[in-house]
Design a protein around this nucleic acid. Structure first.
Lengths: 215, 215
DNA sequence: GTCATTGGAGAGTGGCACTATCCAATCATG
DNA sequence: CATGATTGGATAGTGCCACTCTCCAATGAC
């Protein structure tokens, strides 16, 4: 199919598809002549994945390129590619200054991971972002002790175990990696928005009861 | 204290503090003369909250203004203010087109909420964002059935119940609302990054065993 | 043969979170 | 009281990012 049809079938504007081609998010089509290229179903699928990552998963375009390159890199082993993928995916900001709050947050993060039996990797961007978030809570005086964080850690462990089981069912290593990326990135907003809905629901219960009791 | 000292104590540049004052994220200081203003500890605390929301929570500045205005609005009741806060907080994008995938996603979202005993509010931005994320999964052919999503819903319900209990322990309604905002926004990266760490840990177990077994 | 279409390249746009520059009023100091 | 530094407010500018617009030569369809 031509670029115009790829655009029509995906709902992505031709200009944006050209942009993705330029940025290396989408492999070039098979050049059928000097001014025409042919795209197939695989291009359509990849384009949909890119759109999902960028729009729903809020992955920056430059990051998506790195992630997809790691997924496609047949030369490296599966475990190394997965490592590249998870470190390339966007995380929060790393802690900017090493104050008291950051130090306490780091201790908390380490202890939580120890209790869950995880190997703590201090350089891991997810670890850094976790410390930064906990440090912000500490700075504001909100609860962020090991006991406060542990419930989230247990929940995360449950979810991850379930997700890896799902990923492991895919056959080829490239489809496994693509599934890992898609499920990691796209179930993120699912989880967050379900949490928001649960909070709204729970808040309705708690505060309405309070209000009925006379505030 | 003067703006310069507020800057020193918070680590935020004077130019950025001025920007926040202009944008209404930070109330003006007490004007002590035509060219001088006095800031107190409350300003410092608010500034730290703003920084945490904007930097760690990735809340857009315009959104933070709405959220903080609702927290401060003494004229409205607590429940209404909380409603304004949760709808103002950033969510993912709403579904852009109403195709087959979106329709299926909507059904799934409704059924999950029904099973969890939540009142489904279709106009809720969190609901919209949930549908958009599920639609993206459906479009890519990844598992997004009611059974796939329910574990996340149960986890969200557990977390929310725990969080509301924490919030309910704060005394004044303004501090409760501020706590609701801070905990909702700042525990989000905590949860997400713990999930990433759990995934990395679980992936290490699964794929290393696979590799040892001969790939 | 003619004219609309295609794909590639480069520059331009709009939004956002700052950031740099001015400026007049004021404060501390001698 | 003179004077130079500081302060806070206003305005314009910067850098980044995800597109989007415009142009163009080569081509394909009729």
């Amino acid at each position: 199919m031509r670029l115009a049809e790829l655009s029509r079938r995906s709902g992505v504007s031709p200009a944006t598809i050209k942009y993705y081609l330029r940025e290396g998010l989408l492999p070039a089509g098979a050049r059928v002549s000097a001014t025409q290229a042919e795209y197939d179903e695989e291009h359509l699928r990849r384009l949909r994945l890119v759109r999902a990552l960028v729009q729903v998963g809020r992955v920056p375009v430059a990051t998506a390129r790195r992630v997809l390159a790691a997924v496609d890199d047949e030369s490296a082993g599966q475990f190394d590619r997965l490592g590249e993928v998870v470190t390339a995916l966007p995380h929060g900001p790393a802690p900017d200054d090493d104050d008291h709050a950051t130090a306490r947050a780091r201790e908390t993060a380490d202890e939580v991971q120890r209790r869950l039996g995880w190997r703590a990797v201090p350089g891991n961007p997810a670890h850094q972002a976790l410390v930064a978030a906990l440090a912000a809570l500490v700075r504001l005086g909100y609860p962020a002790s090991v006991e406060d964080v542990m419930p989230y850690g247990r929940v995360a462990a449950d979810i991850a175990e379930h997700e890896l089981a799902v990923i492991d069912e895919f056959e080829a290593s490239t489809t496994q990696l693509e599934a890992a990326v898609a499920l990691t990135v796209l179930y993120e907003p699912v989880l967050l928005n379900l949490r928001r809905l649960a909070q709204a629901n729970e808040a309705g219960r708690v505060f309405r009861i309070d209000a009925e009791a006379g505030d």
